[in-house]
């Protein structure tokens, strides 16, 4: 990042050699099996793809796949809307909860080793083969938590959208916890990399724990927060049971106007662009903050 700002960058020969050398193998694999297929879907998204005796025939149809998805396919449009709202609620909550848990797990406490393991455990649930069964069987929602807070009584005093958000978050609480495993780990690493002398100095200057958190911990954690936000958005978006991902998957095998590889690819690209926009916004918010801190 820094190098971009300098007018001319001198690359050292050995850096170039080892740089390309070390990532060459990965690069080839990545290009062939990930990047090229993604570009191929872009071509597909502008065409009507038919399977003809084992080979794929593409016929260019311009933007019609996109136009159909954005104007007529109400399932898809509503899905995108729900996804945006869900992400806007999920990301801050996951970030805050994982930060709090990471700080607790980092404190000097008997049995932290055990707790750290337990909190990392959901990593194998959310990316494993069983998450579908959980959601289907309702294990992911916590029966009774809705009754715990009396939403009806709040109806008059709090704006409706806030109430909806609150209701959504309480019902999705377990899912949020399950999706925090890696974020907690990343925060913990960030916290442990912190310079302890800084806290000592602050303590001598008479700063309280609360002030230390806001003035020392949080600014120093900013890059970690950005990393976690990006990670959360990505993980949520490509989660295999995400309704839009499921819609794209099912369109893959369907025929007709609402199916086919071409249409499915077009949906994947629209989804990708929406995701990118969301990510851009959330990163910008934190980057701006970072610059202000540096001044």
């Amino acid at each position: 990042m820094k190098n971009n700002k300098k007018p001319k960058v001198q690359y050292s020969r050995s850096d170039i050699l080892s740089g390309y050398g070390f990532c060459a193998l990965w690069l080839v694999g990545f290009m062939v099996f990930t990047l090229y297929p993604i570009i191929q879907t872009l071509i597909f998204s502008f065409s009507n793809v038919t399977v003809d005796s084992g080979s794929f025939q593409t016929e260019s149809v311009g933007f019609s796949n996109y136009i159909y998805a954005l104007s007529k396919d109400t399932d898809f449009i509503n899905g995108i809307k729900d996804y945006v709202i869900k992400l806007v609620l999920y990301v801050p909550v996951i970030t805050v909860i994982s930060l709090i848990l990471a700080m607790l797990l980092n404190s000097k406490l008997k049995g932290t080793g055990f707790f750290r393991t337990v909190f990392f455990l959901p990593v194998i649930i959310t990316s494993g083969p069983v998450i579908g069964i959980f959601i289907e069987q309702g294990v992911a929602s916590f029966p009774g938590i809705e009754q715990l807070i009396n939403f009806e009584s709040l109806a008059g005093t709090v704006p409706q959208f806030l109430l909806d958000a609150l209701q959504f978050l309480t019902s999705e609480f377990i899912m949020i916890l399950w999706f925090s495993g890696i974020q907690i780990l990343v925060f913990m690493t960030g916290l442990q990399k912190m310079d302890k002398n800084m806290y000592e100095a602050a303590q001598i200057d008479g700063a309280s724990k609360w002030e230390m958190f806001w003035k020392l911990t949080l600014p120093a954690l900013n890059p970690t927060i950005v990393l976690n936000v990006v990670f959360t958005v990505v993980m949520q978006s490509v989660f295999s049971l995400n309704p839009i991902v499921m819609r794209i998957t099912s369109a893959y095998t369907e025929q007709g106007a609402t199916g086919g590889f071409g249409y499915s690819s077009a949906m994947a690209w629209i989804y990708f662009i929406v995701m990118l926009a969301l990510l851009g916004v959330s990163v910008l918010i934190f980057k701006k903050h970072e610059r202000r801190v540096k001044k």
Binding site: M1, S12, D15, T41, V234, S237, F272
Partner: peptide
């Protein structure tokens, strides 16, 4: 390491991460 295209490569990798895997 500092080499040409390093940042671009990483950005592309991050973008690829976000593409719905099933679509490819």
């Amino acid at each position: 390491k500092n080499f040409k295209g390093r940042n671009v490569l990483f950005e592309i990798n991050t973008l690829a991460l976000m593409f719905v895997p099933i679509a490819v």
